[in-house]
Nucleic acid binder design. Sequence first.
DNA 1: AGAAATTAGTAACATTTGTAACAGTCTGTT
DNA 2: AACAGACTGTTACAAATGTTACTAATTTCT
Lengths: 154, 154
Amino acid sequence: MNLVLEEFLPYRFNRLAEALSRNASVTYKSEYGMTRPEWRAFALLGQKGTMTATEISYYSTMHKTKVSRAIFALEQKRWLVREVDENDRRLERITLTATGKRAYEKLVPKMQQIEKEMIARLGTENSAALFKGLAALEELYLDRETAARARKAG
Amino acid sequence: MNLVLEEFLPYRFNRLAEALSRNASVTYKSEYGMTRPEWRAFALLGQKGTMTATEISYYSTMHKTKVSRAIFALEQKRWLVREVDENDRRLERITLTATGKRAYEKLVPKMQQIEKEMIARLGTENSAALFKGLAALEELYLDRETAARARKAG
DNA sequence: AGAAATTAGTAACATTTGTAACAGTCTGTT
DNA sequence: AACAGACTGTTACAAATGTTACTAATTTCT
C-alpha cells in the first residue's frame, strides 16, 4: 500500500510535458507573443497549408473553441486569412498570409533547434530508448487514427 | 523548413500526458469525486504522512494557491485535518483523518493496478526503453533537486 | 420536396487556473 | 525592543479553459 507520486507514470508525464513545453514556449512566447494554442494552430497551418478550423482541431487535439480563439488571435496579428468555402459555405478555408509565412519561416528553425539540442543532450542511446517507448505508448493510448498518424510520421 | 507538429517532442509529451491522466483520473474522479490537484495532494499525504502546504506544493509541483484549494476541498470531505504548528504558528501540519486513510488504502491499489496494466500492455522491452528515456529526460529537464528525488525514487 | 438530423464555427456562461496583494508570523539586525 | 525583510497560507482579481447553447448551412431520410 505504498504509492510514490514521483514514480507514478501519469504524474511523471505531466511534469515532463510541462517542463518541455515551458522550455519550448520561451521562444514563441517572448519573441512572437504567441500562446500555446496559437503556436499549435500556426505550426499546423505552416505545415499543411490551407485548413479548416475542424481540421486544425483534429490534428492539434484541441477543442474547437480553443481553436476558434487561437485563429481569431492569429487573424488579429494578420498572420492568417479566412475565406468561406464556396462549395460548403459552413467551412472557412484558413491560410497563412505572406506575413504569417515569413514568421513561420523564421520561427520553425528556432523550434527545431530547441528540439535538436534536447535530443543531443539526451544522447543517442537515451533518445532512441525514449522514442521507442513513446511510440509504443502512443500506439496504446492514442485513439487508433491518431496513433496511425503518429506512427506513419515516424 | 518543415516542422511536423505530431513529431514535435513537447507536443507528443503533452498529448500523451493528457491521455494517461485521463485514463488514470477515471477512477479517482468517478469513484471518489476528486480532481487532479486533490488526488496529488491526497497521494502525497498518504505517502508521507503529516505535511505542510508548502511541502505538498514542492513535491507535487503545483502552485501554492492550487494546493490551498485542493486542501480545502479535502478538508470539506473530512479526509484531512490541519493543526497549527506551535513552534511556528505560520505553518499548518496537515494529516489524513482515519476516513481519509481508509479512502487512501482503497484507492491506491486501484491506481497501482492502472499503472501496472499500462506497463503490462507495453511489454517488458518497451517499458524498459520508456523508463530509461524518461529518467534521462528528468535528469536534464527537471531542476536539480527534483531530478535527484526522481532518480533516487528509481 | 420538406422535415429531421448533422456539421462548422461562434458566443454565452461556468469553472479552473494563474497573478498580485494581503494578514499574520517569524528572523535578523541594530 | 523595534524595525526591515522574509515566509506561510488565503483571498481578490484577471485570464484561460471547458461546457452548453446557438446560428447558419448542409445532408439524410421519408
